[in-house]
């Protein structure tokens, strides 16, 4: 089916940004991801949907090796970013995570000022030559995170002094400050009000012009609104992956249909 949303921002022809082959994830004996194969496109928003515990966050964390930090977690298979195996021993996970940024399910600001939360990444990656440039990056990032107006007068206040929804937007601002090529977002809007949610969705759509965005969401409407591709996970399996318009109007698999229409079974 063609995507009928002709008013969407134009992007170049899509090509694969991340390609996963035969990915298995185990937490000790728990087989959490079962033989997942998927090509995530560049300049595209991909939504991961599925019931709680189906492995969305687990698979998302594979894409920037965040699972390395979990002792009992074992990842098998192959994941390539621009054709390069990200699990190759030669790959530095810190460098990888600068390229593949992440916004977590729960906001996790550093115990530092709002300003430093944003400036941290650009500083260590040498993105600013002087204070003025850094100021500019901080303001631009906070604006993209849809939180600038609320914090511009108290950039020295600790990030943890913000409300939950504000902290989440701060984390989004922090994630885009280093200009990653891929942005992974795990339920970024679960603590946000509708206005902030719209602002974040608008940001996601903007980012799509240059980046590949993967978003985990429990809101079917959000997945439908922001993504061009949708992947439905169920019990660790990738059940269906395809164009979002098709998934939400004519899903192939009855498990997908039950899930998106809110049915039992």
């Amino acid at each position: 089916m063609n995507d009928m949303r002709v008013i969407e921002r134009d992007v170049d022809v899509t090509e694969t940004k991340i390609s996963a082959r035969g990915v298995q994830v185990y937490y000790a004996d728990n087989h959490a991801i079962k033989d997942v194969n998927v090509d995530i496109e560049d300049k595209t928003v991909t939504a991961f949907i599925g019931p709680s515990g189906c492995g969305k966050s687990t698979f998302l964390r594979c894409l920037n090796r965040m699972n390395d930090t979990i002792d009992i977690c074992r990842v098998e298979g192959e994941i390539r970013l621009d054709g390069e195996d990200i699990y190759d021993p030669a790959v530095d996970p810190v460098q990888l995570r600068a390229k593949v940024g992440m916004v977590f399910q729960k906001p996790n600001p550093f115990p530092k000022s709002i300003y430093d939360n944003i400036a941290y990444g650009p500083r260590i990656h040498g993105l600013a030559r002087n204070r003025a440039e850094l100021d500019e990056i901080v303001e631009r990032s906070l604006r993209r995170g849809a939180i600038w107006d609320e914090v511009k007068d108290r950039l020295d206040a600790p990030g943890t002094s913000l409300s939950g929804g504000q902290q989440q937007r701060l984390c989004i601002a922090r994630a885009v400050a280093t200009e990653p090529e891929v942005l992974l977002m795990d339920e970024p809007c679960s603590a946000l009000d509708p206005i902030a949610t719209s602002q974040v969705e608008e940001l996601i759509d903007e980012l799509r012009a240059n980046y590949s965005v993967v978003i985990v969401t429990h809101s079917m409407q959000q997945a439908a609104r922001v993504s061009q591709k949708t992947a439905f996970f169920h019990l660790g399996n990738l059940v269906e992956y395809g164009e979002t318009g098709k998934i939400f109007t004519k899903p192939e698999d009855s498990r997908t249909e039950s899930y998106i229409t809110g049915r039992i079974g």
Binding site: M220, F248, T249, I260
Partner: peptide
């Protein structure tokens, strides 16, 4: 209710 799939049909 923002119907989808068969509900939308």
């Amino acid at each position: 209710r923002a119907p989808t799939a068969v509900d939308l049909r």
